[in-house]
Nucleic acid binder design. Structure first.
Lengths: 158, 158
DNA sequence: GGAGATTAGGTTATAATGTTGCAATTCTAC
DNA sequence: GTAGAATTGCAACATTATAACCTAATCTCC
């Protein structure tokens, strides 16, 4: 299980480590972590809630970056390719990956109240994939699982 | 495992049984399977590929139905609520459910070449959900898993 | 260090997907 | 048959994502 977002933590450390992991990964892969790309990564990591591409635009604009949709989508595509962020399809939104570096399935729990997302271990999804490959003869290349419900805090808040 | 779409089958039977299951389910629940709703269900079942809402519009128009977006989305929402169709978030598309009646997680394999989708048994996803509930204290209400890759036919075609 | 190739970013327009709000109609139950 | 609920028609609009085309920056190789 990845780091638990429901526990108190120094969130600056989340952002910092996300950026430094990104830097390392880019060096390894010969990719360029340009200013827009790094800033988009930081903004995605601003909290643990998936963020829409169009939410990022005004923030980039404030800081003097170009802020047309293609700019953000290109940065997001770059980060997705490197596995630094995941896309939460059911929300059309993006969230930082807690363990980038190796290709891995996207597997999240998202709270329908507060919107916070928790990355989950995807071992079981791998099992589904292997099962499907054996029983149906398909070849699985990508996987995503999204669970929705209430996080501990929002259950209590009711 | 639900019915295997990669095996030859009489597809009219798929559609017919989908409609008759829908009829039964609607009676049980006191819901109305109106003409638009039934036709949308049939169109979604036209093949085993997820279909976009906007793909349905012209087909409905041809047949004299109203064909504004809300018409289709309302019908789809109705069918989703009853579990008669699933939404494939990563494609913004909809596909018929092979075993409606009880609430159950959405779990599909989708071929990136031909677009055909195969519903999968979601037992493993239930495990993920129970694990997350125990370890994190979350409450899972909805689940979806989407696998992407190549189906047997499209692997051979390469 | 300079030519050509590659990658990244700027800009405008537009495509694709999904929603809101309200009026009109149809159905259901009493 | 009438009130209330559910459904549909309709127009406008909101959100999300991409295409196309060009300029600028960076890299590579000699």
């Amino acid at each position: 299980m990845a780091q638990n977002v429901y526990k108190a933590h120094d969130h600056h450390a989340c952002i910092d480590s996300a950026v430094s992991r990104a830097r390392t990964l880019c060096e390894e892969q010969g990719a360029r972590l340009t200013p827009v790309r790094q800033r988009v990564l930081e903004l995605v990591w601003a909290n643990h809630k998936p963020v829409g591409a169009y939410d990022l635009l005004p923030k980039l604009a404030e800081e003097g970056f170009n802020s047309a949709p293609p700019t953000v989508y290109r940065a997001l595509d770059f980060l997705l390719d490197l596995g630094l962020v995941h896309r939460i399809s059911s929300l059309n939104a993006f969230i930082g990956c807690t363990h980038p570096g190796e290709a891995h399935p996207s597997c999240f729990f998202v709270c329908r109240e507060c919107g916070e997302a928790q990355e989950l271990d995807a071992e079981q999804v791998n099992k589904i994939a292997r099962q499907a490959e054996q029983m149906l003869g398909v070849k699985v290349e990508q996987q995503m699982t999204e669970l929705m419900g209430l996080c501990p805090r929002c259950q209590d808040a009711v």
